[in-house]
Amino acid sequence: MQVTARVRIEGPDDLAEHYTPGVAEQAKRVAEDPSVLARETVQANSVAIVSDGSALLGLGDQGPAAALPVMEGKAALLKRFADVDAWPICPVSREPDDLVRTVKDLATSFGAINLEDIAAPRCFTVERRLQDELDVPVFHDDQHGTAVAVLAALRNALKLTGREPADTSVVISGAGAAGSSVARLLLGADFRAERVVVCDSGGVLHEGRDLTAEKRWLAEHTNRGGAAQGSLQDALCNADVFIGVSAGGLLDGADIARMADRAIVFGLANPDPEVDPEAAAEHAEIVATGRSDLPNQINNVLVFPGMFRGLLDSGAARVTTRMLLSAAQALADTVGDDFDREHIVPSVFAEGLVPALAEGVAAAAKDY
C-alpha cells in the first residue's frame, strides 16, 4: 500500500499551490462551506475499512494485527476494480462504544465506512449505531456483501430451474452476520416468510426457542407458523434451496438427496463447504461455493467494489434495502443471456460489472 498524489509537485509554484499558502485558502473554504470537503479533497473517494479481527475470514478471532494484511488486500481490490482509495483501520478495543467512538472520530476523512470481520452480535450493534450517528454510508460487507451476492446468484439459479421466489422454500445454515442478512434480504425480495427457514448449531430457529436478540428477530420473521422443527437435516427435507454460511462438513450427499427435485445448493463456507460439492452435484441441479477453484464462486468481491463506487458517486448518506436489491439485480443481469448451471454469477473481471452495480446503487440512492 502507498499514497500517491494526483498532482505534480515539481517546483516552488507547485509547492505554494498544493502546500502553504495554498492549502490555507482551501481550509477557509471548507470552514465556510463543508460541502467543499466532499467535492475537492480525498474524502470524496475514500473508504475506511474497519476491523477488530474478531471474525477473520474462516480463521475466527485472530486479533487486530492479523486483520491488517486482510484489510490491505481488500483495499487493493477496491482500488483495482473501482478506483476507490481505501484505508485499513484495525482498532485494539472491541467494546461497541469504543469502536463506534473510534469510527466517529475518524469519519471526517472518509466518504464511506466498510465494517469487516467483526464478530456477531457485536457487529450488528456497531453497524446500527454508526448508521444512526454518521452522515456517510456504513456497509458491513460480511452481512450485506454476502447477501447481495447470494440473492443475485439465486435469482439466476431460479430462472434455470423454473422457480419463482414466492414459491421457493429456502433453508439457511448460519444465523450470524451473513445468515441474518441473507434472510432479511430474501424477505425483501419476495421470498415468503413461511418458506424461509434459518438454522444455527442448535437446529431450526423458531419462536419456542430461547434466543438472543438477532436470532429472536429471525425466529419471528422466518419459518412463520413454525412448520419447520428439529435439525438442519430435518429442515432440508423437500427444500428447494440450501444456503450455507456457517461451517464446513455439516452435510453429506444423502442430506441433499432429501431435497426437492432440481435442488439448488450454495455451500459457501471456506475453505471447506458445508457439503462436498461433488457429492452435492449428484443430487442437486445447481451447486455453488465460495471457492475460486470451482464453478459458481459466490464471493463478496463481486459486490463491494461496485457498491462503494455507487455510494461515493451518488453522495448517499446511508445504505438502504432498495440499494442492496438494486445491486443484486445488476449483478444477476451482468451474467447475460448465455448463463448456465455452472455460470450463475459473472467473473469479478467481467467487463461492465462494477459500472453496472455502481449505476444500480446510485439510481436507488436517488429514490431514497
Rank of each mutant, 00 (worst) to 15 (best):
248 G>V: 11
298 I>D: 15
263 A>L: 09
285 E>D: 12
242 F>V: 14
289 T>Q: 00
249 G>R: 00
247 A>M: 06
273 P>V: 07
266 F>P: 03
231 S>R: 06
302 L>F: 05
261 D>K: 09
274 E>K: 04
264 I>G: 13
268 L>W: 09
232 L>M: 06
240 D>L: 08
283 H>D: 08
240 D>N: 06
281 A>T: 03
275 V>A: 11
238 N>L: 13
283 H>F: 10
272 D>Q: 13
261 D>S: 14
269 A>N: 14
281 A>N: 14
289 T>V: 11
236 L>M: 11
250 L>V: 11
247 A>W: 02
253 G>H: 00
279 A>Y: 04
287 V>L: 03
274 E>R: 11
303 V>E: 08
271 P>W: 12
301 V>Y: 06
242 F>L: 10
285 E>Q: 03
298 I>A: 01
296 N>G: 13
253 G>I: 12
240 D>F: 09
286 I>A: 14
295 P>S: 04
238 N>A: 06
277 P>K: 09
233 Q>L: 04
265 V>F: 07
299 N>Q: 13
296 N>C: 04
298 I>G: 11
258 R>A: 10
236 L>G: 02
264 I>V: 07
277 P>E: 02
254 A>Y: 09
251 L>I: 05
236 L>P: 01
270 N>D: 09
295 P>V: 06
253 G>T: 02
297 Q>R: 01
302 L>C: 14
244 G>A: 07
266 F>K: 11
281 A>C: 05
263 A>D: 04
288 A>C: 03
251 L>W: 01
257 A>M: 09
261 D>C: 13
287 V>F: 01
305 P>L: 08
286 I>W: 04
256 I>M: 06
295 P>T: 08
290 G>H: 01
257 A>R: 03
298 I>P: 05
274 E>L: 10
267 G>H: 00
247 A>S: 08
250 L>I: 01
252 D>T: 12
284 A>L: 10
262 R>H: 08
303 V>I: 14
261 D>F: 15
280 A>L: 02
265 V>H: 11
292 S>A: 13
276 D>H: 02
289 T>C: 01
294 L>P: 00
298 I>K: 04
261 D>M: 15
262 R>V: 14
265 V>D: 14
246 S>H: 06
277 P>W: 10
281 A>W: 05
274 E>S: 11
238 N>F: 09
243 I>R: 05
278 E>S: 12
249 G>Q: 00
303 V>F: 05
243 I>F: 13
300 N>H: 09
240 D>A: 15
250 L>T: 06
234 D>V: 15
291 R>C: 00
248 G>N: 09
237 C>F: 12
